[in-house]
Amino acid sequence: MTQTHSKSRQQAEIAFGNTQTQFFARNHAVAEMDSLVAARETKTQRLRQARLAKDADDIAKASAGLIAMRARKSDL
């Protein structure tokens, strides 16, 4: 059984459908952007941790080198 609606009702239904489509498209776009932001933040945190670990390793190696150099100088 098909229902027939007035022309103004049909126009309202079409306008509502268009609004719903725009709403869901916007929500999809926002969700996609949130996903990209989260991925970027995760990558940034991982790279920051790697850089800090490398810096700490470089400092430890430099300190060990200075200690060894002082030890050789004191042996002379």
Rank of each mutant, 00 (worst) to 15 (best):
L36Q: 13
L76T: 04
R26P: 00
R51Y: 06
A71T: 02
S74C: 00
D55A: 13
N18V: 07
Q11N: 12
A60F: 02
R46Q: 13
R9P: 03
Q45K: 15
A53N: 05
I67Y: 01
N27S: 04
L52S: 07
S6A: 14
S6C: 10
Q3M: 12
S6Y: 04
N18S: 10
R48T: 13
F16E: 09
V37C: 06
R51D: 11
Q10D: 11
A56S: 09
N18K: 10
T42C: 12
S35P: 09
E13H: 11
L66P: 00
A39W: 04
A60N: 03
Q11K: 15
A29Y: 02
K43E: 15
R51H: 08
R72T: 01
A60Q: 07
R26G: 03
T4S: 15
L52H: 07
K43C: 14
A15W: 10
T2C: 13
E41I: 09
A60E: 05
S6H: 08
I14M: 06
R51M: 05
I67G: 00
L76I: 09
A31G: 09
R51Q: 11
A38T: 09
Q10P: 03
T4I: 15
M69Y: 03
R51I: 09
G17Q: 12
R51P: 02
F16N: 06
R48Q: 14
R51G: 05
N27Y: 00
A38F: 10
A68Y: 01
M69E: 05
H28F: 02
G65A: 07
S6D: 12
G17E: 14
A53I: 10
Q10N: 12
E32S: 08
A60V: 04
S63E: 10
I59N: 02
A38H: 08
L36G: 12
A12D: 13
A68G: 03
N18H: 07
E41S: 12
F23I: 10
A71H: 00
A12P: 03
A25F: 01
Q22A: 11
A29V: 05
L47T: 07
A53F: 04
R26Y: 03
A60M: 02
M1S: 15
G65W: 01
Q11M: 08
A64P: 00
F23C: 09
Q10R: 15
S35N: 15
A38K: 08
K7C: 08
L76F: 08
N18C: 06
L47G: 02
R70P: 01
H28A: 04
H5Y: 12
N18E: 13
A29S: 11
I59R: 09
M69F: 03
A12R: 13
I14T: 08
A39M: 09
